[in-house]
């Protein structure tokens, strides 16, 4: 690599030094809270009220036990969250790829209109249709049911857009033509040729869909209202907040929060390179 020299302005070494300091500070800001969470989840209620210590205590097992035996059915919550997130993730990625393929590989009349329409509604938030949504769900008797939280993910404009972008760069139609000549049916071509070629994009979007469904609070809180057994983790966190938390064993509260947060952190750390690249690639997410 060529060595550049800056004659004016700050020298590269000074700038690099400043960059490291700022980046370290920001990293500290991002990680500090989770560090405190981890420490506090290992300490007893009595110990916690004495103030903060930077070292973990020995109460991890006790806090775990009191969380498991506590009033909130936390494992149930995790299972519910997992079922909803996993199903949404499969439906969303499969059907978004299918929708993108329909627009990418075929020519038909309304194609241009439909594509423009999807792009235009892409940033309309679900909250503004929530009223009509819960009235609809109520009228077809699906309140307190996972279906209205899973099935709508089939129509995900943002995921569709990502898939469409990816197809433009990674799915030459020659492959599809070749499959046609070999007599493969269109549906079969989609499943056995298009889906495998789209794997990298599907993986990235699977992660995002899973995480956003896992973290979703607004819609599940409106649908899963009556049945405690069906509630998801974010709803339980909200109930914990509404409870008279001063009476709570704080060690247990920290353990609960850690239990909801750390699975995602662990998965993220394993897949982070992938995820960060996916964000840069997609451009639209959030």
């Amino acid at each position: 690599m060529r060595q550049y020299k800056t004659s004016k302005g700050l020298g590269i070494h000074v700038r690099r030094f400043i960059a490291y300091v700022v980046l370290s500070l920001l990293s500290f800001l991002c990680l500090f809270w989770f560090y405190v969470l981890f420490i506090n989840a290992t300490r007893s209620n009595a110990n916690l009220s004495k103030g903060f210590t930077p070292l973990p205590g020995g109460y991890f097992a006790e806090n775990w036990k009191s969380m498991v035996e506590g009033t909130l059915p936390i494992f149930n919550g995790m299972l519910n969250s997992f079922i909803i997130a996993a199903c949404s993730c499969v439906l969303c990625t499969y059907f978004s790829t299918m929708t993108a393929y329909a627009i990418h590989a075929y020519e038909f009349k309304a194609k241009k209109f439909i594509f423009t329409f999807i792009l235009m509604v892409m940033t309309i938030p679900t909250q503004v249709t929530a009223l009509g949504f819960i009235r609809l769900v109520d009228s077809i008797g699906l309140m307190n049911n996972f279906i209205p939280l899973i099935v709508p993910s089939i129509a995900a404009p943002v995921t569709f857009f990502y898939m469409k972008q990816y197809m433009e760069s990674a799915l030459p139609l020659a492959f599809v033509e070749a499959a046609r000549i070999d007599g493969s049916s269109e549906f079969n071509t989609f499943n056995s040729i298009v889906i495998p070629m789209m794997k990298p994009a599907i993986a990235v979007q699977a992660i995002f869909t899973f995480v956003s469904s896992w973290n979703n609070y607004f819609t599940p809180a409106l649908i899963l209202v009556d049945n405690e057994k069906l509630q998801t983790l974010p709803i339980m966190i909200a109930r914990l907040r509404s409870a008279d938390w001063l009476k709570f064993d704080m060690g247990q509260v920290y353990m609960l929060i850690a239990f909801s947060i750390f699975p995602v952190i662990v998965v993220y750390l394993c897949l982070s390179r992938f995820i960060v690249q996916g964000v840069a690639l997609g451009g639209v997410k959030g």
């Binding site: 059907f95 978004s96 299918m98 929708t99 393929y101 329909a102 627009i103 590989a105 075929y106 020519e107 038909f108 194609k111 439909i114 509604v121 679900t126 503004v128 249709t129 929530a130 009223l131 009509g132 949504f133 009235r135 609809l136 209205p148 099935v151 709508p152 089939i154 129509a155 569709f160 269109e186 549906f187 989609f190």
Partner: peptide, 24 residues
């Protein structure tokens, strides 16, 4: 087939987003 592949999206969007928007 383009239209067939579009159907799942179109139907879901119609039921769970467009109708709710209109009824809102």
């Amino acid at each position: 087939w383009g239209i067939i592949f579009l159907l799942p999206f179109a139907i879901t969007y119609l039921i769970f987003q467009l109708i709710p928007l209109l009824s809102t």
